[in-house]
């Protein structure tokens, strides 16, 4: 390999390396500062508490890799919790029927948005913004108030702990990691995944190379819709309720996780494992702030904003130099 190629590759990894370094240093500082911080369970709790965010962020990674954005994810999560709670509690449908239905609904919603984006050449942010309005609005047409879930299967999912030696994880965390693994395989070992990268690199080129641009684009938004719906299902396990105000601002957290994980917002470059690191960083910020005790929860948002700033400027510098 020539030196130039090596350099180009390294430069692409800078955000990811920064994130990894950040994660390690945050965890080390936390371990030194606070009692009980340095434990495996703290790490596992990051996964347990952020399982739904991780799933949503995986879908967002697909979209961002194509150079798009999906602002509807938080609303779709909320709608999924709402529909689940409504069907299970108010209509007595079995969860095994409700969950696939909800997943199908999210996927179809995402597919439609992707179709509109591609066919009518409307900016993704405005289409998914409309999707966001629609999904939140539909929540309230079901119920203004929170619907709590008492279905035994749901509560079982909420309470189950899978032991891991002396530690434990929740089923949701396992599902989230499974989604990451499947997402990784799709992105790196299938034609669909490579087309996603190609689309983000240059849509024009992808078209001229004869790649299925429209199908890839709609699929990507459908994947994001599926992940959001799945995130919603995981959130119902976690919260045991459906509510139109669930997951407000989740789209921002998901975008932040993707960006901090080293995926370029202009598309074409990034890794799903980076997104996993990004979600862990966001979770760790929360953990540190809760361990600190004197810092209020809103510092989370400020720190995320500051990190976003640093990473976006970093991305800009990297891409500017490439040209």
């Amino acid at each position: 390999m020539n030196a130039n190629a090596l350099l180009t590759r390294l430069r692409g990894q800078i955000p990811l390396l920064v994130t990894a370094a950040l994660l390690v240093s945050m965890f080390s500082i936390g371990s030194v500062q606070y009692d009980g911080f340095f434990s495996g369970q703290v790490v596992l709790n990051l996964l347990i508490d952020n399982a739904f965010l991780l799933v949503v962020a995986v879908g967002m990674t697909f979209v961002v890799l194509t150079g798009g954005i999906d602002l509807s994810v938080g609303a779709v999560v909320a709608l999924s919790t709402m529909v689940s709670a409504w069907l299970v509690e108010r209509h007595g449908w079995p969860p095994l029927l409700v969950i696939p239905l909800v997943l199908l609904m999210g996927t179809a919603g995402g597919w439609v948005m992707g179709w509109v984006i591609h066919v009518f050449e409307i900016q993704p942010f405005i289409v998914t913004l409309a999707g966001m309005f629609l999904a939140r609005g539909l929540c309230y047409t079901i119920s203004i108030d929170s619907i709590s879930i008492t279905d035994p299967q749901y509560t079982a999912m909420a309470q189950t702990r899978i032991p891991l030696g002396s530690l434990f994880v929740s089923p949701s965390a396992v599902i989230a990691l499974l989604v990451v693994a499947v997402g990784f395989v799709v992105l790196h070992y299938t034609r669909l995944g490579r087309n996603v990268y190609a689309l983000g690199g240059s849509e024009q080129s992808a078209l001229l190379m004869g790649l299925p641009v429209q199908r890839t684009k709609t699929t990507v938004y459908a994947i994001s819709g599926f992940c959001s719906a799945l995130g919603g299902v995981l959130l119902t396990f976690y919260m045991l309720s459906g509510y139109g105000l669930h997951a407000v601002g989740l789209e921002l957290d998901a975008i932040a996780a993707v960006v901090i994980g080293g995926t370029l917002l202009t598309g074409g470059s990034g890794y799903l494992l980076g997104t996993l690191l990004g979600v862990l960083v966001l979770g760790l910020i929360q953990t540190v702030i809760s361990f600190q005790g004197t810092l209020s929860s809103w510092w989370t948002r400020i720190v995320i904003g500051a990190l976003l700033f640093v990473f976006i400027v970093l991305q800009r510098l990297i891409t500017a130099r490439r040209r």
Binding site: R194, A198, G201, S205, L211
Partner: peptide, 19 residues
Amino acid sequence: EVNLCPNLSVAENIFIGRE
């Protein structure tokens, strides 16, 4: 203006769509 994807590897650019 080379219509390939600059972000992908040389091998991928040769084979993308028919990997």
